[in-house]
Amino acid sequence: MENQKIGFIGGGNMTAAIISGVVKNQTFPADQIYVYDIHKEKRESLHRKAGILAVDSACDLVKTCSIVFLAVKPQSFPPMLDEIRPVVEKGKTLVSIAAGISSSSIVSALSCDCPVIRAMPNTPLTLGKGATAVCRTGNVADETYHLVLKLFSSCGMVSQIEESQMNAVIAVNGSSPAYIYLFAKAVLESAEQQGIQPSVSLPLFCQTLIGSAEMLLKSGDTPDELIRKVSSRGGTTVAALDVLEKNHFEQTIDKAMRACTARAEELGK
């Protein structure tokens, strides 16, 4: 670790979340973490809040760091890769958190067979409750890979998958917080229309989400078995489930997830 320096190109919310978790948990020394963002105020804000080092260009960061997180939006990848191409060497490990951008396309754009790790985190990283899916190319050193896994683990849990699954997994953990928030919004609005204020319904519903997640993880029951345990014939839960089934709830979720995957594939072209 003494010889490693970590850098982030892009100082947005995900970068801030990762750095916050890493520094808070003392997973990696703050004075060995660098950041560059085209917006000076963002990199200076991260410097002030986390004690990391801000640099004035993406190329300076790549020259300095052995592990470089590529934390810009997919649409910004081509110009960013063009900018850093002259200074990327085989010894640099690149960590991409961009949706849809394959490791082979990164290597091709840089004209360098550098090691690449792809990661799909989600926004609950900001609370240390993230869920990150990770894969790597064959030339990533084990020591480096385990360090990157440790960095993400300091912000939540990590699952290792194959790169062929990276686009599809976005719908599972990357984008799925938005589906849950939409579901919560609908529940809260319906509750309010029925006379229950958000100050009451929000904590009740959030605790129900937490408890239900724990049941899924720890009960040993399948989702279908858990549904049956909540449902009584002719009861209130069945009345609600009947409406969801008639409105093709499961098929709608499947269509939404497939649309998410398709968009990831488009972004990678």
Rank of each mutant, 00 (worst) to 15 (best):
M1V: 10
N3Y: 12
N3H: 13
Q4R: 13
K5W: 03
K5G: 05
I9M: 02
G11K: 00
N13F: 00
N13L: 06
T15L: 04
A17L: 06
A17H: 08
I18Q: 03
I19G: 03
G21P: 02
G21S: 01
Q26P: 01
F28I: 10
A30Y: 03
Q32H: 06
V35N: 06
D37I: 01
I38N: 07
H47K: 15
R48S: 14
I52A: 10
D56L: 06
S57E: 00
A58E: 03
K63R: 12
F69E: 00
L70F: 13
A71P: 04
P74R: 00
S76W: 04
S76C: 07
P79M: 02
P79Q: 03
L81T: 08
V87E: 00
E89D: 11
A99F: 07
S105T: 13
C112S: 03
I117Y: 07
G128P: 08
V134I: 15
L151W: 09
M157N: 14
V158Q: 03
S164N: 15
V172K: 02
V172M: 11
P177V: 02
I180F: 14
A186F: 04
A191S: 15
A191P: 13
E192A: 14
Q194K: 10
G195L: 02
P198R: 11
A213L: 07
L216E: 01
L216Q: 09
K218G: 03
G220M: 06
G220P: 03
D221Q: 13
T222G: 09
P223A: 08
D224E: 15
D224Y: 14
E225W: 03
R228S: 15
V230M: 10
G234A: 14
G235W: 10
T236M: 11
V238I: 15
A239L: 11
L244N: 04
K246E: 14
F249Y: 12
T252N: 11
I253M: 13
M257V: 10
T261A: 14
A264V: 09
A264Q: 05
A264M: 01
E266R: 13
L267G: 05
K269C: 09
